[in-house]
Simulated scan of single mutants.
Amino acid sequence: MNDVWIQKSALYYAKFAEPLDPDQGWRREDVQLAFVAGAREQPIRRLLTMREVAEILATSVSTIRDLVLHGELAYVKVGRGTERNHMAFAPEEIESFIKRHTQRDYAVAAPKTMRYGTRKRAHELAVERATSDEGSFMAQYEARRAAAKEAKKK
């Protein structure tokens, strides 16, 4: 490993962690012990490219652009593009996006509304009227026409 990287990582860890003895502050031995104990992260995390994010989310690059456009994903503007932003994404933002959009659907055996329950639909009612014992469509039509004539005479 690179000694400079080890030193920077240990200093980064010392900067954001508590010393073993707060009264004495950080001592050289404490920094070494802290680094050996688990200073695993780099000082600045690597940002993900648009393609990497698209691969992680199993979508296309254009879908990622749409998510950015609608404010679903926060990005870091890198480069000096004026027409199209060159974007990079923090891994924490991708994890947050996944958590926000994770959902679990449960299959429901019961009907969702009354409409899908016992109530008859319009076409079912029409079929029922046409096939009822009152006669055919023409018989029903003639009966309604005669009733209308009687109502007109009165």
Results as ranks from 00 to 15, higher is better:
Thr113Pro: 09
Arg51Glu: 15
Gly71Asp: 11
Ala126Lys: 14
Gly79His: 08
Ala10Tyr: 07
Leu47Arg: 07
Phe35Met: 01
Leu69Ala: 09
Lys112Tyr: 12
Val31Trp: 07
Val127Thr: 09
Ala126Gly: 05
Glu18Ala: 08
Thr59Pro: 02
Asp30Leu: 00
Ile56Cys: 02
Ala130Asp: 13
Tyr106Leu: 01
Arg28Tyr: 08
Glu18Thr: 10
Lys112Asn: 08
Leu67Pro: 04
Ile98Gly: 01
Arg46Phe: 04
Val108His: 14
Trp26Leu: 00
Phe97Leu: 00
Lys77Arg: 10
Ala110His: 14
Ala54Met: 11
Asn85Cys: 02
Trp26Val: 00
Gly135Thr: 08
Arg104Ile: 02
Arg84Met: 03
Thr131Ala: 07
Asp21Tyr: 12
Ala122Leu: 13
Asp30Thr: 00
Asn85Ile: 01
Pro22Trp: 09
Arg119Gly: 03
Leu47Met: 07
Leu33Pro: 03
Ala17Phe: 04
Ser60Pro: 08
Gly71Glu: 11
Ala14Met: 13
Glu52Pro: 08
Glu95Tyr: 08
Phe35Ser: 01
Ala34Val: 02
Tyr106Gln: 04
Pro43Cys: 02
Glu18Lys: 15
Ser60Val: 04
Asp23Trp: 10
His86Gln: 09
Ala74Ile: 03
Ala39Val: 02
Ala90Phe: 12
Gln42Asp: 06
Arg51Asn: 13
Arg45Tyr: 05
Leu125Phe: 08
Lys112Trp: 09
Ala39Gly: 13
Arg28Ile: 01
Pro22Ser: 13
Gly135Ile: 06
Phe97Trp: 15
Arg115Pro: 01
Trp26Cys: 00
Arg100Ser: 04
Glu29Ala: 06
Gln42Ala: 05
Ala37Gln: 11
Asp66Lys: 14
Val76Lys: 11
Lys99Gln: 09
His86Ser: 05
Glu55Thr: 15
Asp105Tyr: 15
Ile64Ser: 05
Ser132Pro: 07
Phe89Pro: 01
Arg65Ala: 03
Arg104Leu: 04
Ala58Glu: 15
Leu69Pro: 01
Gln42His: 07
Leu48Ile: 01
His86Trp: 08
Leu47Trp: 06
Ser62Thr: 13
Leu69Val: 02
Leu20Phe: 13
